[in-house]
Simulated scan of single mutants.
Amino acid sequence: MLDILAITTPIFLIIAVGYFAVYRNIVPQTIVRGMGAFVMNFALPCLLIRAMAQRDISEIIEPIYLMAYGGGSLIVFAFGYFYALKIAKKKQPNATLQGTGMSFCNSGFVGYPIALQLLGPAAEVGLALCVMIETLVMMPMALVLGDSGQNEDQSKGRVLSKAFLNLGKSPIIIGIVVGLCISLSGWVIPRPIFTAVDMLASASGPVALFVIGGGLVGLKLKGLRADLAGIVSGKLILHPLAVFTLVWLLPDIDPIMQIACVSFACSPMLSIFPILGQRYGHEGLCAASLMIANSLSFMTISTALWLLDLTQAFGPLP
């Protein structure tokens, strides 16, 4: 367990430093938002380019990983969505947000730094695969369901086309496409360009964690207790269990990638969750869920990695 804490503790210490820096106004929260934009628009895309450009396409596209992570995410999303819609009698935008909060990981800002500490360079491939599922499958689905619940005059096809158009402009997607093209072409990036890409990519982990901590300052714990409990427990417990189960049941892949798949699923929900909530008038619920999930994730992630190490379900941790 001490070995696991040695991996997870530095991650959450940087989050705590970010929180303290903004709370004490050492770094203004507006600056932290700018740092977050830097990570999303430059550092993470460069990380994905670096991960893909240095590998053969056969090393990047892992169908079993995609099936396990994508399948587990879809199952948990469907559970949260239909429970809120049919059992709790919530409106469709609220139900969509509950499914989203349970099934979307903060793969870039929390999942990647933890996987990097645990697995090394393999974490970059795991991140790229998770991002593919989240941006090409999960996000369009969530936007279609949420927007169609608010804009009943628009067809789902029109909403979906807008969602994909917006995603096509995302630097993250552009980074994936550029990395895949370089991998397929066999082109070697000139050393000065690669050095710049590598420097930007290396900044993604610590800066992202600092941003997470700073973003927690000022969030209010508002919302229904049942909704909060459902979203947080669904994300921190149900989602990792669903992904673990599929990784266990599906044909074997590299044990490192099995561990990566589960470790990414253990991270709390995406950091823009309150922004999505604001889109549908539920920013208080989403912000409170994010704050609680980030606070509890130190314990849940450490416990999950300890159990993986104890049971050696996919072999010993590296």
Rank of each mutant, 00 (worst) to 15 (best):
P93F: 08
L236S: 06
F244L: 14
I176V: 15
A288V: 11
D227S: 13
L129K: 03
C286V: 04
F244P: 02
Q278D: 15
A122K: 08
L145W: 07
L66V: 04
S233G: 10
A201L: 02
L97H: 12
F210L: 13
P268F: 06
L310Y: 15
P121Q: 05
L219P: 04
I11G: 05
A95K: 12
M52P: 08
S233D: 05
A115I: 10
V243G: 06
P93C: 08
I133E: 01
I15T: 10
M102S: 05
T245H: 01
S161P: 01
L47W: 03
E62F: 09
M67E: 08
L246H: 10
G108I: 01
D252H: 14
L119S: 11
A53M: 07
S73E: 05
L296S: 11
A196W: 06
G120A: 01
L296C: 12
D198L: 07
R24Y: 14
L307T: 11
A208W: 06
A53C: 09
M139I: 07
G71Q: 11
P318T: 06
M199Q: 14
I57D: 00
L249C: 10
D252P: 03
V27E: 03
F42H: 02
A128R: 00
Q29W: 04
V243D: 10
D147R: 12
D147C: 03
I272Q: 07
T245P: 01
R24K: 15
I60K: 04
R50W: 00
N166S: 13
L160N: 08
N151F: 02
M299Q: 00
D3H: 13
K91G: 14
C286L: 13
A88S: 14
V188E: 15
I31F: 11
N151I: 00
L127D: 04
M199L: 15
S271F: 13
M35A: 11
L136H: 02
F273H: 12
L296P: 07
I212P: 06
Y65S: 02
I64A: 12
M52R: 08
A313Q: 08
A196Y: 06
K220W: 00
R55I: 07
E134F: 00
F82W: 14
A242T: 05
D147F: 01
I189G: 04
F210K: 05
P28T: 12
Y65D: 02
L228D: 07
G175N: 05
G230Q: 09
Q154T: 04
A84H: 05
P63I: 12
L127V: 03
S204L: 02
G214V: 01
V76W: 13
A95N: 12
D198F: 01
M269E: 03
N106G: 04
A43W: 06
A122D: 13
L5T: 09
R24L: 14
S271A: 15
M257Y: 14
A201H: 04
F77G: 14
S295M: 15
S155F: 03
Y280Q: 09
I292Q: 09
S202W: 02
F20Y: 14
I57V: 15
G186Q: 09
P121H: 01
N41F: 01
A288M: 11
L74T: 11
I49L: 07
V159R: 08
W187N: 05
L143Y: 09
I87Y: 03
L241N: 04
G175L: 04
Y69Q: 01
L305Q: 07
L116P: 00
I272N: 12
C105D: 08
L221D: 00
A123E: 11
I231W: 02
I237G: 10
F298N: 12
Q29S: 14
